[in-house]
């Protein structure tokens, strides 16, 4: 179970989604999703691969546009935002990609500096370096500052990916499959890091995963996406205490102790 008691304010909804619909051609991916993320909360979205979990967070960050429904993030209606208004909102949302999405042609330092120097032009070189060192320290990888992404392991790349989003001090973190493809020890390290980020940076997060160990370790609340809608939600026990065969199958294949 998750350690520590995060401060969750259930009176403030930082993300509010109503009746979200998204299709790709003939394929209906999301069919009326409703979701609230509360301030300070770690919300885990569970579901099989291809059920639209990543589509959901891409819509939240404005990378995809919904077909129907409202997506309200930090008081802004995301589908209605364009250009600089959308960019301003994006600065408050950190997105950790499944494959880390580090820029291959840049060193770790340049990767971390990139969002900062482009969006906070009044910072001096010293201040930028200090921020880079702070986030590298937060993810425990200070020694990699001059390395290239190709020189890092999968787990290190994930950490750097998270550090790159933290550098802008986001209010919301979106993690897309943070433990996918990692060994069990590194998974635990990433789970701990997600919890540390929540405590230290006071973020509200959505964690997309199909790894129940990760879900149990980081989630304050869980929702399960089945057939394009959230079928189950609550604590880990509440979600899996059901006779629904699809949910049971999902649990059985995750080998939870």
């Amino acid at each position: 179970m998750k350690k520590g008691q995060p401060v969750i304010d259930r009176s403030i909804s930082v993300i509010s989604i109503k009746n979200l619909v998204k299709s790709f051609g003939d394929l209906d991916v999301l069919r009326g999703v409703d979701l609230d993320l509360y301030k300070g909360e770690n919300l885990v979205v569970l579901g099989k691969s291809g059920t639209g979990k990543s589509v959901l967070i891409k819509i939240i960050s404005g990378l995809l546009r919904p077909d129907e429904g409202t997506v309200n993030v930090l008081g802004e209606d995301v589908p209605q935002l364009r250009g600089r208004d959308l960019d301003r909102l994006r600065l408050r949302i950190g997105f950790s990609f499944q494959n880390s999405a580090l820029y291959d042609s840049m060193t770790i330092k340049k990767n971390l500096e990139f969002p900062l120097v482009r969006n906070q032009k009044d910072l001096t070189r010293g201040e930028v370096l200090q921020r880079v060192e702070t986030v590298l320290d937060a993810v425990g990888l200070s020694q990699t500052i001059n390395q290239m992404p190709s020189e890092l392991s999968g787990g290190q790349r994930k950490r750097i990916g998270i550090a790159r989003t933290l550098i802008l001090n986001p209010d919301i973190m979106l993690y897309d499959e943070p433990t996918a493809g990692l060994d069990p020890i590194t998974c635990i390290e990433i789970n701990n890091l997600i919890n540390e980020v929540q405590e230290r940076f006071h973020t509200s997060s959505i964690i997309i995963t199909h790894d129940l160990t990760c879900a149990k370790a980081v989630g304050d609340r869980m929702v399960m996406l089945l057939d394009g809608v959230f079928q189950r939600q609550g604590t880990f026990e509440e979600v899996f205490n059901t006779d629904d065969k699809r949910v049971k199958l999902f649990y059985d294949y995750n080998f939870i102790d």
Binding site: K58, S61, G62, L63, D87, R88, R90, L91, I93, F95, F97, A101, L102, Y103, D104, F114, P115, R118, N119, R164, T165, L168
Partner: peptide, 9 residues
Amino acid sequence: QIDAMEVSA
């Protein structure tokens, strides 16, 4: 990486 650039404004 292109999406990562976009989400970092």
